[in-house]
């Protein structure tokens, strides 16, 4: 049922906008190479109509245009990660899924801006309790410290590795001479990350792995 609705939505959208991409094309691009990803982000920003919808929603719900642009950007980040990690279950169209994330994101952000009664249609995620937010902020601070220590090349390697790029693609992106070099480089960078984290008592404590530290 969800699939047939999704097909009908896509057909309607394609008829309205012949340049529109299908859900499958968007997903494939997000799982593809760096240029493919950048191209689909540009498409979603410029031509999908999703950004306009998000900005309009935010403006109607007490925000302004810059806030709407920010919500679109952060939604895109969450959406991209969910797609890559296989969290999209295909029980709605991608557009509906994206807009759902945006609504949830804006709702949560508004709650932290100005407490007010909650509309029924929204979920109440526990991870936005103040305690959880504090932990998140601490973790972000820790991540920033790790990033400072990693060096530009290793940061790029970690990013490409997480995007499931092959050794060939990593070699091409970094200008390395061979996929074998990319493999070695990736291993060295991941070891560097590991050594840095295990060498920092405060980080280990934060991760609650101090009982294993020093073993």
């Amino acid at each position: 049922m969800g699939t047939s609705r999704s097909v009908a939505e896509q057909t309607h959208r394609t008829l309205k906008n012949p340049g529109a991409r299908t859900d499958e094309q968007i997903i494939q691009a997000l799982l593809g190479s760096i240029p493919q990803r950048e191209e689909v982000f540009a498409y979603l920003y410029r031509s999908s109509g999703w950004r306009e919808w998000v900005v309009q929603h935010v403006c109607l719900e007490g925000g302004d245009e810059p806030a709407g642009a920010d919500v679109f950007q952060e939604t895109l980040i969450l959406f991209d990660r969910n797609i890559r990690e296989g969290r999209f279950r295909e029980d709605s169209s991608l557009q509906t899924y994206f807009l759902g994330i945006a609504k949830q994101y804006w709702f949560n952000r508004r709650r932290s801006i100005r407490p007010q009664s909650l509309p029924l249609e929204y979920e109440r995620p526990d991870h936005h309790h103040p305690e959880h937010i504090t932990l998140q902020n601490e973790r972000q601070h820790m991540i920033n410290q790790i990033l400072q220590a990693m060096g530009e090349h290793c940061k790029k390697v970690l990013e490409l590795y997480k995007l499931s790029m092959t050794n060939e693609e990593i070699a091409r992106e970094l200008g390395l001479s061979s996929p074998e070099m990319a493999k070695k480089y990736t291993y060295r960078c991941r070891e560097k990350f590991r050594a840095f984290v295990l060498g920092r008592k405060d980080i280990v404590e934060h991760l609650d792995i101090r009982s294993y530290y020093g073993k």
């Binding site: 950007q73 980040i77 973790r139 790790i146 940061k155 970690l158 997480k162 995007l163 984290v197």
Partner: peptide
């Protein structure tokens, strides 16, 4: 936990790249 942190670090880099592209756009 180490792998989870590595994921978060990597995702933070991916997110930063998306933010930079959005800024350009």
């Amino acid at each position: 936990e180490l792998r989870r942190l590595e994921f978060d670090v990597s995702e933070s880099l991916i997110a930063e790249n998306i933010r930079q592209q959005m800024q350009r756009l």
